[in-house]
Design a protein around this nucleic acid. Structure first.
Lengths: 129, 129
DNA sequence: TAACCGTACTAGTATACATAGTACAGTTGA
DNA sequence: TCAACTGTACTATGTATACTAGTACGGTTA
C-alpha cells in the first residue's frame, strides 16, 4: 500500500506521513476510515513500530488523523477552521514551483492546461491508480 | 542578502541553495553575475566556509551556477537542454500542492486568479522586494 | 481473559550536519 | 614578482537526528 525508499535522504517516517496525507487529500482514505495499526503496518513495511508511531504522531499533530488508545488511528474529517496559515504556505510553494517552470521554459498555455487537468481531478475527488 | 534559519530542521546549505535558486529563477541574479565568494559569504552569514561551499557545489551539480577556480562562482545562463526530468518533478509537486489546496477548500476561482498573478509576475521577469 | 490497540520510555548504532583548521593551485592587480 | 584573492580538498571533532531493539503500561473488545 505504501512504497518507501529506505535509502533516501528523507526520513522514513516523513515519507510515510506524506504518502498518507496524499491519500487523505485525494480522498482515497475516507474520513473516519481506520488506518493500519502501528504493529501491523510495521510488519508489512518491515519497519520498526516506533517509526510508524512517529509518522502517526506527526499526522495527528498536523490534524490529518486522530488516534484512540485501544481502538486505533483514523482519518480525521476536514473541518472548516482557520486553514489560512497552511494555505499561505501552499501559496508560497506554488509560487516557487510556477516560477521555476516558467524559468525552465514551460509555455504558459501548456502550464494552464496542466493545472486545469490537475484541478479537475482534485475536485472530482477520487483518483484511481 | 540571504536569511537563514539556523534552528530549522532543514540543513543550512540546503536553505542557502534554495534561496539562491529562487533569486536566479526570479532573475534577481542575472546570468554570468558573480556570486559572493565562499569566504565573504561565510563572513556575512557567520557560517563555516565549508557549508557555503557545499551549497555552491550542490548548485553547480544541479546546473544553476558554474565555478572557476581562482576567479569565482557565477550564475549559469539557462540553456535549452533536456529539462524534462526537472519539469516532471515540478509537475508532481504542483499536483500535490493543488490537491491539498482544493482539499483545504480554496475556491477554484480564487486559485486560478492566484495562479494568473503568479505567472504574470514570473513572466515579467523581475520581482522587486 | 486474551488479543488487540495507542503510547511511552530506555539504550545503542549509524548517518548527516556543521564547525575548525590546514593546505594547495589558479587568477589578478599592484 | 608578490600579495591577496578565488575555488577546492582534505582531516578531525562535536552534535543532532533517524532508526532499531526491547520493554512496559493502560484502554478496548470479543
Amino acid at each position: 500500500m505504501f512504497e518507501l525508499d529506505l535509502r533516501s535522504r528523507k526520513p522514513v517516517y516523513e515519507q510515510l506521513a506524506e504518502k498518507i496525507i496524499e491519500l487523505i487529500v485525494c480522498n482515497v482514505l475516507k474520513p473516519d476510515q481506520q488506518l493500519p495499526s502501528v504493529r501491523v503496518l510495521s510488519g508489512e513495511l518491515t519497519i520498526n513500530p516506533n517509526t510508524i508511531q512517529k509518522a502517526y504522531r506527526e499526522l495527528e499533530h498536523r490534524g490529518y488523523i486522530y488516534s484512540l488508545p485501544g481502538k486505533g488511528s483514523f482519518v480525521r474529517p476536514r473541518e472548516a477552521g482557520d486553514n489560512s496559515a497552511r494555505i499561505n504556505n501552499l501559496k508560497a510553494q506554488l509560487s516557487k514551483v510556477l516560477s521555476e517552470m516558467v524559468y525552465l521554459g514551460v509555455p504558459r498555455d501548456e502550464l494552464i492546461s496542466t493545472i486545469e487537468n490537475l484541478l479537475s481531478r482534485a475536485e472530482g475527488g477520487n483518483i484511481d491508480d
